[in-house]
Design a protein around this nucleic acid. Structure first.
Lengths: 182, 182
DNA sequence: AAAGACATGTAAAACGTTACATGATTGC
DNA sequence: GCAATCATGTAACGTTTTACATGTCTTT
């Protein structure tokens, strides 16, 4: 079994739905998972090699040869599915959150209030843009909750929408307080 | 100037308020910053050595020798303060969030609904405990907003309280949806 | 013709955690 | 006497990002 590399579980999870190449996996991560997980080619390709060696995944027949270069699709094996399920069944999960925005705000007293207001505004703008994307996903998913997996996708998107809306309420409140005392 | 090691900025920020030892710094991080930042001895002590060599901090006279072993307190230098302020004045901030809880939930369709409910419950219990602590901080700080720095501490705590309360609302809603279709 | 997406992979560097080594002091 | 806390530091290990190398195909 693999050590504890989370990227392995991301890949196994994605492969449990459909056969994918490394490049496809990167796209899935960037689209569907990006607001709560990230991954780069430099971690995906080595993970694919290692998991194939360990028998958790195998090379699949390339269904759709899109014409461009080689393209190596992988499928999950029964051992891979076992590893995925055993990870899923462990309810303990580590949520590792690093908010550089809050770090800067915490030390805001070192300079003037305007500096902190700028940091909050930059954060606010990022969240406004990201929330728009999430709301689109949400609209699409809520019209399609019949598919067994869609409820799980919907719940993660709901999490994103609710926390992002909370962020935006906080941004307003925080800026108001800083302007008042600034 | 230091590379881009965020732990350096955490330390400089803390030292901008008071002289501290490595051990003290760890305690400050665990108490005041833990819900949005983490740091271990294995990163703190090497950072202290490196920043002292670079002239961003210096060894301070050990004000309170508590009797136990040596105890090396550090003070920020004017170069260190410059580095801190230049970091603060860059409004761009990277918020790096990894929610293993959401990752497990996203792939929840692979097993039964009860597995996902358990994962959510474990998350919920963690948040309930952490929220209690935050509310205590919040109560203490809101009685003390006269101190110039306290508004910044208060705003980060407010961020924590609001997002945690959002998490808990989401946990209830998510479990309700999973039970209904489970 | 150029830019950008498609596609795989490696190497170097940065970063951080965990565990270990060491030892004094304090509270039960 | 034992456990916990105070206190500093190093070493091994593992993960991940960034940058590079390479080349095709499609769109403008």
């Amino acid at each position: 079994m693999a050590k504890d590399r989370k990227i392995d579980m991301v890949i196994l999870g994605l492969l449990s739905h459909e056969n994918l190449s490394g490049y496809d996996i990167k796209k899935r991560i960037d689209n569907a998972l990006s607001f709560f997980w990230k991954g780069s080619f430099g971690s995906i390709y080595p993970s694919l090699s290692a998991m194939e060696k360990d028998g958790l995944i195998r090379k699949a027949e390339n269904t759709e040869n899109s014409g461009s270069r080689e393209k190596i699709c992988y499928a999950i094996t029964s051992d891979g599915k076992k590893a995925l399920i055993s990870w899923l069944e462990d309810a303990k999960a580590v949520n590792d959150l690093k908010y550089e925005t809050l770090l800067k705000l915490f030390f805001g007293g070192v300079t003037d209030a305007q500096t902190s207001i700028n940091t909050i505004t930059a954060f606010e703008n990022e969240i406004i843009a990201a929330l728009e994307v999430l709301k689109m996903y949400q609209a699409n998913l809520s019209n399609n909750l019949d598919n067994k997996d869609h409820i799980y996708y919907y719940l993660t998107v709901l999490f994103g929408v609710e926390t992002y809306e909370g962020y935006l309420r906080w941004c307003k409140e925080a800026k108001k307080m800083l302007v008042k005392q600034g």
